[in-house]
Every structure is written in C-alpha cells, then in structure tokens.
Amino acid sequence: MPNPILEVNGLKKYFDLKGGVFGRKVGEVKAVDDVSFTVMEGEILGIVGESGCGKSTTGKSILRLIEPTAGEVKFEDKDITNLNTEEMRKLRRDMQIIFQDPYASLNPRHTVEKIIGEPLLVHGVKSKEERKKRIKELLEVVGLSPYHASRYPHQFSGGQRQRIGIARALANNPKLIICDEPVSALDVSVQSQILNLMQDLRDRFNLTYVFIAHDLSVVKHISDRVGVMYLGRMVEMANKDELYDNPKHPYTQALLSAVPVPDPDAEKDRIILEGDVPSPSNPPSGCAFHTRCPRAMDICKEVRPKFEEQENNHFVACHLYE
C-alpha cells in the first residue's frame, strides 16, 4: 500500500469582493469551499470541472501560490499551511507546477538555459558546469535537443514550449507536480505527444501528479483516480473506471453525457442541463447543484450533502445516496 503524499483537509479559499466608496468588503467569492482529498505516492489524481468551479484555485492553494483561507494541506505528513516563506521556498523543491499557457508562463527575455537553470540556482546548484550538464540532461528527457538551450521561447512551437515548462518543473527532481491544464492550449496531435511524455516521466521518476483539466477524455486517459468539482466543492471522486462507467452524482452523469464522442454510431442519451453555473459569490443554498439538477428534492435546497464514501473508495456528495 503506497503512502499518502498529499492530504488536503477542508481546504477553503474565499476571495473578498470589494465595493463602495471606501472599498469595503461587500461579499465573498467562495472559489474553493471545503474540499478534502488524499493523493497517494506515484498516483495521478485528475480534477475535472467547468470553468469557475475552483479547480485551478485548489491547485494553486496546495502550493500556497494562493494563500488558502482555511483548511489543512499536508505534504508527506507535514502541515505546510503554517510554514513561513523561507521554509515554503525550500519545500517547493519537491512540489512543482506546470501551467496552462505555455505562451505566458515562460519569460520571453530569458533563454531556455536561464529558464530551466533558475530553479537549479535557487535550490543550490551553484556550479555553472553542473547546471549546464543538468539542463542538457533535462532537455533530452523532455524530447528537446541540447542546442535548444540558447534559444528564446518565441522560437518554439506551443508543444515545445510546454516541454520547456515540464523541464523546468522537473529540474530539482520534485515528488509532486501540480499540472494546471497542461494540454488545453495544444492541438490534438501535439496534445497526445505531451500526454505520453508526462506518462513516461511519471513511470521513470516515480512522480505524483495532480492533473487539473476540463477535458474529460484527457483526464480519463491519464489519471488513476478522478475528482469532479462543481462550484468550489468536490461532488464526486472515485477510481477512473468506476467514475466513468458508474457515475453517481447527477452532475457527473450530465457532464459525462455532454462530451461529444468522435463516433457517429455512439448512442446519444444526452442529459442537457438547463441554465448556467451559478455565481460563486452567491452560491445556492444546500447542494450547490440543486438549481440545475434533474433529480433535485426538497432536502437539496436546505441541507448541504456530505462528501461521503459510498462503496469501495467511491466518494459522492449527494442526498440521493444517503
């Protein structure tokens, strides 16, 4: 049984809404509202959800790139929410992040060598020779060539830039990588290259990923377990086959049925949800999904359902199963 590498307990992130003449607080956006989960060593946990559901905020709060409002984040059994900046900086050696937009996340004025070398320098690889050697190694690992080191980001295609982003994340041999929509800006043929690369790297370096994406097929392909978020809350989490074959939460069911499948013969019993995602600054009472849920009951409007294990590792937050 592998050990849990990351434990998130009751994570909350509320953003203040300022307004009025004096910029007083007039409300809160509950971007992440009481989310708990555990990630095992060597596992890929996928987090899916629509825009505004808080999946990226969750990812960034784990690394404390966004300071969580409440809750506990344990990395290797150590609570990291109270560490000071210096301790956190040291810890980030082991926890890295890959961003969505390979165009915006690389400094256009730095060469690839500088981009990948920076985390090495920060974490104590002082000798220039050693750094050069490591950069060369990293470029080869992600499928680029050592001569790319002297180039600038604009000279690369989207897929290559994402490879640079991955090389930078790998520089200090991290244990956990948060991948925030790493392939959504890429074309299909390049997307599959990057997904394969990420899978290879996981096997080679025994990495753990938290893979955040909105594309359900991509998440299914790469993850071992998948969590579904809606309006700042985790609504369902299970092993990927269990979740995709036997979704329990009405939102997950609707979400899965809405994915267009590139197969003209596929049966289409689509659940089309009414309306839009409500605003997280004023979430519905009780279960956040009750305004759009085809199976909503009276209790759903009043009581927030608990996120509980139904059967073998299949967690769901829905009154239908209580």
Binding site: E50, H214, A254, L255, S257, A258, P260, I272, L273, V277
Partner: peptide, 10 residues
C-alpha cells in the same frame, strides 16, 4: 464548457 457546448450544439 461541455455542458454549455451541448446546449449550443443542440
């Protein structure tokens, strides 16, 4: 988003 995409395609 996918659920909205399904509405628009419909």
């Amino acid at each position: 988003d996918v659920t909205i995409q399904a509405q628009i395609l419909d």
